[in-house]
Design a protein around this nucleic acid. Structure first.
Length: 418
RNA sequence: GGGGGAAUGUCCCGAGCGGCAAAGGGGGCGGACUGUAAAUCCGCUGGCUUAGCCUUCGUAGGUUCGAGUCCUACUUCCCCCA
């Protein structure tokens, strides 16, 4: 490790992106010699991407930063099939309309990390529906299918695990790896793409593509996988109680996104700074040496830098400032997430249960609100709510004309009368 | 095709002699302690207009004062035989 001559592998390696790599020397030499093209495939099963997809996005980002050409491949075609890797059960098949809608949302995210053609960069966004949807079954079997050995396909983990557990694996899903392999070949033909990256669970799929490329085109292709990122306590990234941490501001506010990173466990800070920010390595080294209480400074940097990448520098700094005022000075920052309510409701008196459950959505039901009150977890303007029947009225408005509702010590929402 | 088993709280795993809003975990949320961390300890973890009411144990019927539990049919999955 560390002996790579190309910027690309040097950077990816020192920042912790590399798990497995096929033929490192040959790839290193190619990346050193000139501009290479690489891709990563993304599902379009949801309307946005969440933190779990951040790692591959960052790999494409670094690829471009080190002078190469990244391709973000949208799985418009393969999403209609569903990858069986790591799944116990067949996935729900999405309609084509739903997939296209999801695609639009995902495009917007990518433009924050990559400079595309036409926007001053060389990055490409491709969609495998462009070629997969047009395939002719017989031609495909004869040109591509003949290169695949079923004996070998059965030996891949994604297939083997299903068979061993006697779980259904449909023929449709069985074909997923063939299609993904074909994608790689198609991207090589179209864009001279020679490297496919992905999570460590994608190794088998990628290697299939390499084999197919050799057989069909006599091309030398490469695989690079990233480690599966879990937190120090073993949880998968990107899921919180409230649901996935999405990368779009409509689904998760920049403030909440900042908070997600701010609450990183101590043991993850250095690793996350390398993976999820673009700070220089020596700066990260300095932050990583902070110990005890001081590590909070590193967490703030992590939060702000990671948020800036997705939501922009201004939004990130505002989130940091909101957090500073809320947590360190205990002031009510008017930039906290807020919900508008009607002044007339407040005039009549608004029940606390309704305020927390229906308006602020800090809890999911009146019942949960009651339980939290019993446990001392709800606060109005920083005063613990003791009574289920408490009414919020105009008198609860602070000097700033808002009412601050809190769940626990960390989650706050402002009610703004209109 | 024949025989045997299984499906439980809408996050998951799982106990449940006819009186059950249903044991126990994990996860999650809240509280205490801290550094907006981890670990630890405590509480909570179906809904509502909460002395009560309503809805939940694969689906649909039936027996019973009363069914997650018994009976019948169906669906899905697993095991054994062919």
């Amino acid at each position: 490790m560390g002996a790579y001559k190309s910027d690309l592998l040097h950077v990816l390696s020192e920042r912790g992106f590399i798990h497995q790599l096929s033929e490192p020397e040959a790839l290193d030499a190619a990346a050193k010699a000139g501009t290479i093209t690489g891709y990563i495939g993304f599902d379009c099963t949801a309307a946005s991407l969440h933190v779990g997809s951040l790692l591959p996005i960052m790999m494409l980002h670094w690829m471009q930063q080190t002078g190469h050409r990244p391709i973000a491949l949208m799985g418009g075609g393969t999403t209609r099939v569903g990858d069986p890797s790591g799944k116990d059960e067949s996935r729900r098949i999405l309609t084509e309309a739903a997939i296209n809608q999801n695609l639009a949302g995902i495009r917007a995210i990518f433009s924050k990390f990559l400079k595309f053609e036409g926007a001053g960069g060389n990055a490409i966004m491709a969609n495998n529906a462009d070629w997969l949807n047009k395939l002719n079954y017989i031609d495909f079997l004869r040109d591509v299918g003949r290169h695949f050995s079923v004996n070998r396909m059965l030996s891949f983990d994604s297939v083997k695990l299903r068979l061993e557990r006697q779980q259904e694996l449909s023929f449709l899903e069985f074909n997923y790896m063939v299609l993904q392999a074909y994608d790689f070949v198609e991207l090589h033909k179209r864009y001279k793409c020679i490297i496919q990256m992905g999570g460590s669970d994608q190794w088998g799929n990628i290697v299939n593509g390499i084999d197919l490329g050799r057989r069909m085109l006599n091309a030398q292709l490469f695989a690079l996988t990233s480690p599966l990122i879990t937190t120090s306590s073993g949880a998968k990234m990107g899921k919180t109680a409230a649901g996935a941490v999405w990368l779009s501001a409509e689904m998760v506010s920049p403030y909440d996104y900042w908070q997600y990173w701010r609450n990183t466990e101590d043991g993850d800070v250095a690793r996350f700074l390398k993976l999820f920010t673009v700070l220089p390595i020596d700066e990260i080294g300095r932050l990583a040496r902070l110990k005890g209480e001081e590590i909070n400074e590193a967490k703030k940097v992590l939060a702000t830098e990671a948020t800036a990448l997705v939501h922009g520098r201004a939004a990130a700094e505002q989130a940091a400032e909101t957090a500073r005022r809320t947590f360190e000075e205990g002031i009510i920052a008017d930039t906290l997430p807020s919900v508008e309510i009607s002044r007339a409701d407040l005039d009549k008196g608004l029940g606390v249960l309704t305020a927390f459950a229906e308006k602020a959505r800090l809890v999911t039901s009146n019942g949960e609100a009651r339980r939290q009150i019993k446990a001392g977890g709800l606060k109005v303007n920083d005063v613990v709510v003791a009574d289920d029947n408490m009414m919020l009225t105009l008198r609860e408005l602070t000097a700033d004309g808002v009412i601050k509702l809190s769940l626990g010590r960390k989650r706050h929402v402002l009610l703004k009368p209109v």
